[in-house]
């Protein structure tokens, strides 16, 4: 019962709109602070790697991007499940806003991985298991985005994309392990990235800070997008008229 009430209250558009408006500056500030600290720690304080020299500093964006690419997909799929089961509008908004952001993080992970690979492997692209999985993940994201925008009716598009996201979630582990298995068979380059037994604290702290900063960035963008989408969807509701009049 209480969960249902919480859902209802959190999902109630005017309540969420105001709450999001209050939370937004905090999230944005925290994001910038973490980003600044992480960049300073990663680019300036952390010592160069004894094997890779300065080029390893790419991990401070590569690894958080790769984490985010999966995390955002999971959020999107969870929202997809909520959309299909409870038809909650807020979950539709979050799922729709997540797709381009997740695709961006996946793209970033791919580009930084390839730029990191050039000094390490001598070539921009190798069919490394992680890069290949990220590439397929990018295709999955593009499919979700394509489906969302293919329907003229936005809610139908959101529901169709939700089904696809859930199918993708069932597939992601299968794809991941099959790619990993395929990669070990074909014995790619033996430089395994970040499989070091332990990572030094001066590198770990900036890495985690950057990961938190990326999460906060995602949250900030979600709140911004959710606010404007709610205004648009509810444009005939009394509370939106009040909001517009109050400006």
């Amino acid at each position: 019962m209480t969960i249902a009430r919480l859902f209802h209250q959190f999902g109630s558009p005017p309540h969420f709109y105001r709450l999001a408006g209050r939370m937004l500056p905090w999230f944005a500030t925290a994001c910038v602070a973490c980003l600044a600290a992480g960049l300073y720690g990663g680019l300036v304080l952390a010592p160069p790697d004894y094997q890779q020299g300065e080029s390893y500093r790419i991990i401070f964006i590569h690894v958080p991007s790769a984490w985010m690419s999966l995390f955002v997909y999971m959020v999107m799929a969870a929202c997809g499940a909520i959309v299909l089961i409870w038809r909650m509008k807020l979950a539709e908004v979050v799922a729709q806003a997540s797709a381009p952001i997740g695709a961006s993080f996946t793209f970033m992970a791919l580009v930084t991985g390839s730029l990191w690979g050039k000094p390490m492997w001598g070539t921009y692209w190798v069919w490394d298991a992680r890069l290949t999985s990220e590439l397929i993940l990018l295709f999955l994201y593009l499919g979700v985005i394509g489906l969302q925008s293919a329907y003229e009716d936005r809610r139908t598009g959101a529901r169709a994309a939700a089904v696809l996201a859930l199918v993708g979630v069932v597939n992601i582990p299968i794809i991941h392990y099959s790619v990993e298995w395929w990669n070990t068979l074909h014995q790619g380059p033996t430089v395994t990235k970040l499989d070091k037994p332990s990572i030094h604290l001066s590198m770990l702290v900036p890495l985690l800070l950057m990961a938190v900063a990326f999460k906060l960035y995602y949250a900030t963008l979600l709140l911004m997008r959710a606010r404007s989408d709610l205004l648009e969807r509810e444009r005939n509701a009394a509370w939106v008229r009040d909001e517009v009049a109050a400006r």
Binding site: S55, I58, I61, W116
Partner: peptide, 13 residues
Amino acid sequence: GYAAFVWGSYGIC
């Protein structure tokens, strides 16, 4: 010596 790669990836991101 890795300026192009490091700053390139930070810039693109």
